[in-house]
Every structure is written in structure tokens, then in C-alpha cells.
Design a protein around this nucleic acid. Structure first.
Length: 974
RNA sequence: GCCCGGGUGGCGGAAUUGGCAGACGCGCCGGACUUAAAAUCCGGUGGCCUUAUGGCCGUGCGGGUUCGAAUCCCGCCCCGGGCACCA
């Protein structure tokens, strides 16, 4: 039996009846369930099925609780794969995307997810991306957008810029895996750093609502450090030309360096102002624009050489961090802001221009990295902090005068072996000597402030968000460049800036740039010919506010309607993968806050989530579901297991097969043809294109074994160490196609299995046997319900559904069953509230097992079982329960099951006359007694002491303690 | 290196205000039905000892608190994830 027919029938009927349509309805409380919308890559995969099944159960449960549930679906439709497909298969990205959407939509519908499809959106449609442009312009008006020339991460294969977040640890492109290069181009930025503080602080209100893991990842990503900035004067004379140059640069770089009273200052950020007297050199990032300008004449060549070297060689390795720390003296000195001493300036490859001010004061005695660098270049190391122990010793052993003198002129007994980075007391620090360093941080900063050479400062690791992408398939950035008027925003009335249909992929690079029809335009200010910006927006822009658009997807003159947002937002439950823990979720939080400040939505006067509106937090509860993996067996594991050297597989195929047989990987009765058995394994693998990173499955196929034989071999190996669990991927040949599963078993069994296999947040390995288990359960369930049909039919029209009245006449077996039934209703309700779907499914199975154990069940009890059981299973397996609801006659009485309320359990049914009490002696279980539920402690004690088993243990011993946990357990200490 | 999360049968996992460890499912073993297989149904299934009865051990390891610990505390080990020259 396949449930597919039933499923299709009800899907059609539900659709015709628009059961999942949602409208704003102030009389009802809303509930917004959202699953991360998919990229339309072609087909849905198991990860999608898991994500959307979880969301669907929640949405259906909330509907059954009477909420007005918003449960929309759409498409994250812009992005690179469409362009790659365009190049490879010569299809237009739009066609490719829209075709994929229509196919995947059909697939989603086949799973019976309860979406209101009338709210569907696709980000590649004009009526969506128009609002990206609108928001961009609003951000621009409000100072949240700027353009600057920067060194960017450039993917040579995608020919586009990548955000820092889109570059992997090894310095590879997150999409295609190519090594990312460095390139300087002007780009558009969203000023997310303006919200760094808020983004960090507001993580607090997400406590216990978002997974701790995600909150911490975001916290680390934002990376707050407290300290001070300090201005170091540069020992250089400025001529007029140089002065002008630097003054211009200074503005561009927001006072990371500046000219005051004709003197040049470089600003550094430090978390250790307490060590300022220990500074012995200053380090600049190689990208620092001052470097070539202030380097001394004789060092200029070296400096240029170094800059080039870093540019060319470093970036790949720079990400991996496995390069040698190197630097170059630029030949110009700085002057210490307090002591007036002169120290050299170095460029160093480990200094990051984008962090802080791109300049570091180096204190080798108290920073390991500075220490290593100083050793390498033979720079002085000056101790300014000593450990508490040493400080106390000095204080005790020396006279007051000697002690004070040594604080001012401290020399360590022997040279330091490493930097001292811990807390301690200051020495060699003028009047600050003797202060505890934590105290000194404040005091020294205050002092520098009084000199006008520093102040308290906080830095964040978070960088501004570069949204420029040199691609066609994205939202055009609504900007026009005019000779006269320079950078001109496209007026709101001219939106959207439409993406042209013509696209030419014959050459690499951005097709928009070559599209003269698109580029050529007229300046909206002066009317003269002008050119359009050809960058398009990062697709993360699209997904940063789509949850708002879902509130009013059809809105024509605004991105979303304030009223709708006030009603439906915030998202009550947002479900998706952890892979979006930082990027998408951080960007969305930023958008919500920025949109609040530019007043694109209101903070409602009364709302259960008012705080979230005020703080600009879009997602109330976040659920991160684990991955659906699949076991696979890499060839290399087989080699290792057989003790074969991967690099030399010069044995015959025959011997290899025999080895496999010896180890019981292959069964003895497998024979291979004579003509291949004598070739070497090496050759056999090469002939069949099998590498050590390939699936063993390929090898078995190459042996021309039968499909089912292969399947058996692999299944048998699944639980051995030979198998590895991995994300499903084409290259590993471990992909399970949801469509095939649906074809074979139906949507409901797949849904139920995926929920049953593991708790929501954990990864699990897909196993067909597991799916078969839930399938068997559903079939058994279906048959059992059908067997109730006759009895139920005779009752349903006339019965008043007052089950309680009849319960007292039931047999004790029936009473127990009825108790189990209501216990299950209670448990499932509680588990659903906690998103614990796997234990819900267990409870269903337990209940069915109990039902099947009872030989004779009264018709009214059958009716009650069928009524409640179907209702509580409905969010999980909506089709099967609707079918049974219909067949058993409930539908004609009550309407669709999907529109019913979640049932309440009967407290009375849960009550027991008798309970079983486990009896422990000294904490060890020795006996169990069945006693009346209302037994008193004394009665129970008497009863227990008469028990034969217990007597045995307490005979001749003294009872020291009698512990009774009412209705649960007894422990006797002897 | 730093910060999180987690170690429970052959496997996925139950049992979280400390109170019967191993629910439920998979797999495996045995049985029924069948000419046979599949499907289905019934029974068994943590380890060791024992004829049953029963006993001992057991939630990564070592200690502790407690009448009682998978659960709480201390110290280790292992696995997974995130961040990593961030000044």
C-alpha cells in the first residue's frame, strides 16, 4: 500500500477549499511560523524536507490551538548557480530559475506542507527587488550606505567580490571553492558596524529563545574589545604637497591618522593602555596608505617591495595563518606620547588594516606576537608589568626608597623567554609605576586624554558589509554616475531599475558592464548622458527582509504595510540550518533595526512581542535543525582496513577480492569473471575512474554485481567503522532523493520518519530501514482504524461525544487503555510545545501497541480512540488522518480534520486506582508492589514488611531509615 | 590556543525540579503462516554468572555529595562544532 493516492486526493481538496489561506484578523491571535526559504537549485533535498516538515508540524499544531497562523513560502531566487547554469547549458538565468521554482513548488506541494501559496514570493521578481532598491536608497538617505575603494576578496572564477564572511578559512570562495585573491575596487557598503553595539547587546533578549550556540557565535563574530586609542606623533617634516595629500587621505580614512599643528599623528587602538611605557616600536598594516608616503628615501624600495610581496603572496596563506611573521623598517620614527622617546615604525604582514586603525603599538614584553617580532628584528624589549608575587617580594625585602627606585628603574634578572601577558603591577612607567595594571588602564588613558593624545575606545571585529557583486543575476544597485553631478541616486519614482533581459555570457566578467543599453542613461539631476552602476547586490540583501514582505506580499507602493507588520511580526518560530547562524541571521537583525530607525514599520502600542519591535529583533524563537546525513564507505577506508598502501595498489584484483572475502566484506559465493581477475587492482581502479575518495559502491558496480547484492553488502557495512557519516553529496554518491522516497512510500511516512529519527537539533544518518519502520507503523495504524469502522459508524450520528459518562463501565483492561490514550494526548501536547517531535512519534507507537494488545474494545471506546488519536496525529501525518477522519464519518460531522482544535485530555481518565511502587533496599531495586493509589505511608510500610522478598533482605537487620516518595518509590536503609 | 556542545546496548535514541536506566524504532535471534520466498503476526534481545529462582556489573574514566546520581560537584580522557595573528 502506498499512501500517495490518498495524499494527492486531499491535497487537491484542501487547495480547492483554500484551507491554508491567512488574512489579517485582529480578533484572533497571530502566530508566524517561518522556514528559511530555499534557493531554487533544481530539486528539493532531504535537508529541505526536514526543515519544512518541522515547520509544518508547528504550523499545524498552532492552527489547532486556534492561532491565526502565517506560514508562507518563497524563493531566494537570485544568485550565482543560475549564472553558472546559464554559461554551462546556455539557458537564461531567469528561465532556469523559474523552471526550477515551478518544479520544486510541485515537490513541496506533494509533501502536503500547509503554506498559504497566495503569499509566495520570488526575490528575482521586479515587484520584490524593486524594494531592495527602495531600501538601499532609504539607507543611503540615512547614512547607512557608503561607497569606498577597498581591497576586496575577489573570486577569479566567479569574477566577483566576496564578503569576508563568504570566504572560507582556507581562503576559498564559499560557493565555488576557488582561491580568493586581493583586488582593489570601489564597492558599496552597508554600515552594519553602526549597529555593532546593539547587535551585541540585544543578544541578551534572545537568551533561552535562540540556541546558546548561535548566540555565542554571533557574539564572537561581533567581537567587542575595550581599550583606548592613543595618538603617536610621527617624527617627520611635512612639505606642502605631502601635507595636502595626507590631509585628503585622513578624511577618507576617518582620522586613523591626521595632521595637527603641522605635525602628523598616527592613531592606534590598544586593549592594553597600561603597557604604553613598554612600547618599543609601532606596526602598520602593509595596506596602510601612509606607508609609502612617510617611508624614508633610503628605505622606500624595500618598503615598496614588501608591500608588493604581501599583496601577491600573502592573501591565500594569510587566511590560513601559516605564513611567517615578517616586517620591514620604514626608516621613519614615532615619538612616544608621554616620554618623547623615538621608536621605529615597521610594516608587518600580520597587521590587519581593517581592524581598529590599522596601526598597532607594539609592546614586546607583554604581547607574545610582538615579542616574537622583536626577537626576529632585534628590537628592544622593555618590561613594564611584573607579577604580583614578585611585586610583593620586592616590597617586603626592600626599604621604601629602594622599592620606589626599583619601580622606576626595573631590570629583569634574566632575559624574558616569552612575553608576560597576565595581570600585575606597573614598573618603569613614571608616576604610574606601582599601580595595579587594571587600575593603570584607566589612569593612563585619563592622563593621555588630558594631554589630548588619547581616549577610551571600544572596537568591534565586525566589519561593514560589502554588498557589491559584479554579477548579472541580482538586484541592480540604483545609482547613476554623471560627469557633472558625480554619484546620483536613482529617484524613487524611477524604480525599479530593471534587470535587462539580454545577457551575454560569451566573455568572462560582469555581463551588465558590457550591456550598453543598460548602462547608458540620463542623469536624473542635470539630464546629461550618464552611466548606471553595474554592480548588483549581494543576495543576502534579499533574505534580510523577506520575512517582512511575507506580511504583505502584494503591496504595490511599499515594501510592506505597517499594519500588516504590526499584526504578523515578529516571526514566532524561525526554523533553519545552523549554517546561517552568523551571516543571514546577523544581517536580518541589522535590517530590522535599521528599518525601525528609518521608520518603515511602527512599534505597535500593544503587542505580545512589543520588546522585539522596540529592539528591532525579527525572530522570537530560533530553531536550528541538524543535517540529514548518509553513511558512505570511502575506498580509502577499505584500503586502510586491509592494510594496503594507497599509493601502491599493485596487487591483482583477484587477491584484493580474496582479501575482501577473508574479512567478510564480500561473501564467499561472489564470483568475478576470469578476464578481469588477473589485472592489477591499480589498473582496474584507473580503468573505472575510481579514486580513494570515491564511494566503495563504485567499485562494487565496476565488478558488475547485481543491484540488490550491492545493496546488501553496503547495508551490512553501514554500522562498521568502514562507513563514515557525511552530508549527502553527488560526489560521495550518498544522496537520497526525497522524490523517490515519496514515490515508494508516500509523504506521510517520510515526514514521520524524519521527525522520529532524531531530536530536531541533531544531525542524523538517513536509513531506509528506519523509514520502513514508520511506514509499517502507519499501515498498522490505518488497518486498525479501518477495523473500527463498523462500530464507529453505528454510533457517530447519534452519540453525544460524552465519553466520561461511559468510562466507569469499562473493563479494567479498557480503563487502562483509555488511560494510555489520554496520557498520550497529554504527552504529545507537552512535547509539541517543546518541539520534541521524536518523542511524540514514540508515544504514538506505544499507544498503537497498547490498542493492539486489547482483545475486546467497546464501540464507544473505539470511537474515542479514533477521535483523539487521529486528531493528535494530524499535524504529523495530515493526509492519512484526514482520510480516516473522512472514512470513519467524523468529517461529515465536524469538517476537515486540519481545521479541528487540538484535543484536551481527561484528567479523570489519568487517575489510577492502583499503583505499582518499586521498593529499594539500600538504593537497590528489590521488589515491586501493587497498592491502592491512596495508600498512607504507614499502611504501605506495613504492607512492605510483609512482602516475602523484602523480608529476606531485612531479616536480622535494623531499619535505619524509611524513605517514601509519594506514589513513586520506597527506599529502605538497613 | 580560546569558546561552545556532546559521550547511555550492535545502531538511532528514551529517561532532566536527583527516584524502576535502556521507552519507541532499526538490526539481530527464535517461532507461526507458506511448497518456498516476500509480506504479516507472536516471542526474545545491555554484559557476565546461574537449571529456573536469582545474583553481580553497567550511562567515557577517576573521585566526591546523597538514603538514592545517566542527572549535582571536582579532576581527567575522547569526539563534534565555532573562532583564531583582532592589537
Amino acid at each position: 500500500m502506498n499512501f500517495k493516492k490518498i495524499e494527492e486526493k486531499w491535497q487537491k481538496i484542501w487547495e480547492e477549499n483554500k484551507v491554508y489561506k491567512v488574512e489579517k484578523d485582529e480578533s484572533k491571535e497571530k502566530y508566524y511560523v517561518l522556514e528559511m526559504f530555499p534557493y531554487p537549485s533544481g530539486k528539493i533535498h532531504m535537508g529541505h524536507v526536514r526543515n519544512y516538515t518541522i515547520g509544518d508540524v508547528i504550523a499545524r499544531f498552532k492552527r489547532m490551538q486556534g492561532y491565526n497562523v502565517l506560514h508562507p513560502m518563497g524563493w531566494d531566487a537570485f544568485g550565482l548557480p543560475a549564472e553558472n547554469a546559464a554559461i554551462k547549458h546556455k539557458v537564461h538565468p531567469k528561465k532556469w530559475t523559474l523552471d526550477n521554482i515551478s518544479y520544486m513548488k510541485k515537490q513541496l506541494k506533494a509533501f502536503g506542507f500547509s503554506y498559504d501559496w497566495d503569499r509566495e514570493i520570488a526575490t528575482c521578481n521586479e515587484d520584490y527587488y524593486k524594494w531592495n532598491q527602495y531600501i538601499f536608497l532609504k539607507f543611503l538617505e540615512n547614512g547607512l550606505v557608503y561607497r569606498k575603494k577597498t581591497n576586496v576578496n575577489w573570486c577569479p572564477s566567479c569574477q566577483t567580490v566576496l564578503a569576508n564572511e563568504q570566504v572560507s578559512e582556507e581562503g576559498r570562495c564559499w560557493r565555488c571553492g576557488s582561491i580568493v585573491e586581493q583586488k582593489e575596487i570601489p564597492s558599496w557598503f552597508f554600515k552594519i558596524t553602526a549597529y555593532a553595539k546593539e547587535l551585541l547587546e540585544d543578544l541578551e533578549i534572545l537568551k533561552n529563545k535562540w540556541p546558546e550556540k548561535v548566540r555565542i557565535m554571533q557574539k564572537n563574530w561581533i567581537g567587542k574589545s575595550k581599550g583606548a586609542y592613543i595618538d603617536f606623533e610621527v617624527d617627520i617634516e611635512l612639505d606642502k604637497e605631502l601635507k595636502e595629500k595626507i590631509e585628503n587621505l585622513s578624511k577618507e580614512y576617518e582620522n586613523r591618522f591626521f595632521i595637527k599643528d603641522n605635525r602628523l599623528y598616527i592613531r592606534v587602538f590598544t586593549t592594553r593602555p597600561d603597557t604604553v611605557f613598554g612600547v618599543t616600536y609601532l606596526v602598520l598594516a602593509p595596506e596602510h596608505p601612509l606607508a609609502p608616503l612617510i617611508a624614508s628615501e633610503e628605505k622606500k624600495d624595500k618598503v615598496y617591495g614588501f608591500i608588493e610581496k604581501v599583496k601577491k603572496l600573502d592573501l591565500k596563506k594569510r587566511f590560513r595563518g601559516d605564513f611567517e611573521k615578517e616586517g620591514v623598517d620604514i626608516g621613519t620614527n614615532i615619538i612616544h606620547p608621554i616620554t618623547g622617546e623615538k621608536f621605529p615604525i615597521y610594516l608587518a604582514n600580520f597587521a590587519i588594516f581593517d581592524y581598529g586603525t590599522g596601526a598597532v603599538m607594539s609592546v614586546p614584553a607583554h604581547d607574545q606576537r610582538d615579542f616574537d617580532f622583536a626577537k626576529k628584528y632585534d628590537l628592544p624589549i622593555k618590561v613594564v608589568i611584573i607579577p604580583e608575587e614578585e611585586f610583593k617580594k620586592l616590597k617586603e625585602n626592600l626599604s621604601e626608597d629602594e622599592f620606589l627606585a626599583i619601580l622606576q628603574n626595573y631590570h629583569p634578572k634574566k632575559d624574558l623567554e616569552k612575553a608576560y601577558e597576565d595581570k600585575g603591577y606597573l614598573v618603569n612607567s613614571a608616576e604610574f609605576s606601582g599601580l595595579y595594571n587594571e587600575e593603570a588602564k584607566k589612569e593612563i588613558t585619563k592622563y593621555l586624554k588630558s594631554l589630548g593624545k588619547g581616549d577610551f575606545a571600544t572596537q568591534y571585529r565586525l566589519r561593514d558589509w560589502n554588498i557589491s557583486r559584479q554579477r548579472y543575476w541580482g538586484t541592480p544597485i540604483p545609482i547613476i554616475y554623471c560627469e557633472n553631478c558625480k554619484v546620483v541616486p536613482v529617484p524613487e519614482k524611477d524604480l525599479p531599475v530593471k534587470l535587462p533581459d539580454e545577457v551575454d555570457y560569451s566573455k568572462p566578467g560582469n555581463p551588465l558592464e558590457r550591456n550598453e543599453k543598460f548602462v547608458k542613461t540620463i542623469c536624473p539631476k542635470c539630464g546629461k548622458p550618464a552611466r548606471r552602476e553595474t554592480d548588483t547586490m549581494d543576495t543576502f540583501v534579499d533574505s534580510s527582509w523577506y520575512f517582512l514582505r511575507f506580511c504583505s506580499p502584494k503591496s504595490k507602493d511599499k515594501p510592506f504595510e505597517k499594519d500588516d507588520v504590526s499584526y504578523f511580526m515578529v516571526v514566532d518560530k524561525y526554523i533553519g540550518g545552523v549554517e546561517h547562524a552568523v551571516l543571514h541571521l546577523l544581517y536580518s537583525r541589522f535590517f530590522m533595526k535599521a528599518l525601525r530607525d528609518i521608520k518603515l514599520y511602527d512599534i505597535p502600542k500593544e503587542h505580545k512581542q512589543k520588546l522585539f519591535f522596540e529592539k528591532g529583533e525579527p525572530f522570537y524563537v530560533l530553531v536550528t535543525q541538524g543535517m540529514v546525513n548518509k553513511k558512505w564507505i570511502p575506498m580509502k577506508n577499505i584500503f586502510k582496513f586491509l592494510n594496503l598502501d594507497e599509493s601502491n595498489l599493485n596487487i591483482s584484483l583477484k587477491d584484493f577480492i580474496n582479501l575482501l572475502k577473508e574479512k567478510n566484506i564480500l561473501s564467499q559465493d561472489i564470483n568475478i569473471s576470469e578476464d578481469i581477475s588477473n589485472i592489477t587492482l591499480d589498473k582496474f581502479l584507473k580503468d573505472n575512474f575510481i579514486g580513494s575518495e570515491d564511494n566503495f559502491l563504485l567499485f562494487l558496480k565496476a565488478l558488475s554485481l547485481k543491484e540488490d547484492e550491492i545493496e546488501n553488502i553496503l547495508k551490512a557495512l553501514e554500522d562498521t567503522p568502514l562507513a563514515e557519516s557525511a552530508k549527502m553529496s553527488k560526489s560521495k554518491l550518498n544522496v537520497v532523493d526525497p522524490e523517490k522516497m515519496l514515490e515508494k512510500y508516500g509523504a506521510d511516512p517520510v515526514r514521520l520518519y524524519i521527525l522520529f529519527a532524531a531530536p530536531v537539533e541533531k544531525d542524523f544518518d538517513w536509513k531506509d530501514e528506519g523509514l520502513e519502520g514508520t511506514y509499517r507503523f502507519l499501515k498498522r495504524y490505518y488497518d486498525t482504524m479501518i477495523s473500527f469502522k463498523e462500530d464507529i459508524e453505528s454510533l457517530i450520528d447519534t452519540f453525544d461525544f460524552n465519553f466520561e459518562r461511559l468510562a466507569k463501565n469499562y473493563s479494567s483492561e479498557e480503563k487502562n487503555l483509555r488511560r494510555k490514550l489520554h496520557e498520550t494526548v497529554k504527552k504529545v501536547y507537552e512535547y509539541l510545545e517543546k518541539d520534541r517531535f521524536n518523542t511524540c512519534v514514540s508515544s504514538f507507537m506505544e499507544l498503537l501497541n497498547e490498542i493492539q494488545k486489547v482483545k475486546s474494545i467497546s464501540p464507544t471506546l473505539k470511537l474515542e480512540i479514533a477521535y483523539l488519536f487521529n486528531l493528535i496525529m494530524s499535524p504529523f501525518v495530515p493526509h492519512i488522518t484526514e482520510e480516516l477522519w473522512n472514512i470513519l464519518g467524523f468529517q461529515k460531522k465536524f469538517g476537515f480534520i486540519v481545521n479541528q482544535r487540538f484535543p484536551k485530555y481527561s484528567q479523570k481518565a489519568l487517575e489510577k486506582d492502583e499503583i505499582e511502587i518499586p521498593i529499594q533496599i539500600n538504593g537497590k531495586l528489590r521488589s515491586k508492589l501493587t497498592v491502592p493509589a491512596d495508600i498512607s505511608e504507614n499502611e504501605l510500610k506495613e504492607f512492605i514488611l510483609k512482602d516475602e522478598k523484602i523480608k529476606k533482605y531485612i531479616e536480622g537487620k535494623q531499619i535505619r531509615k524509611f524513605i517514601y516518595i509519594p506514589k513513586r518509590l520506597v527506599n529502605i536503609v538497613v
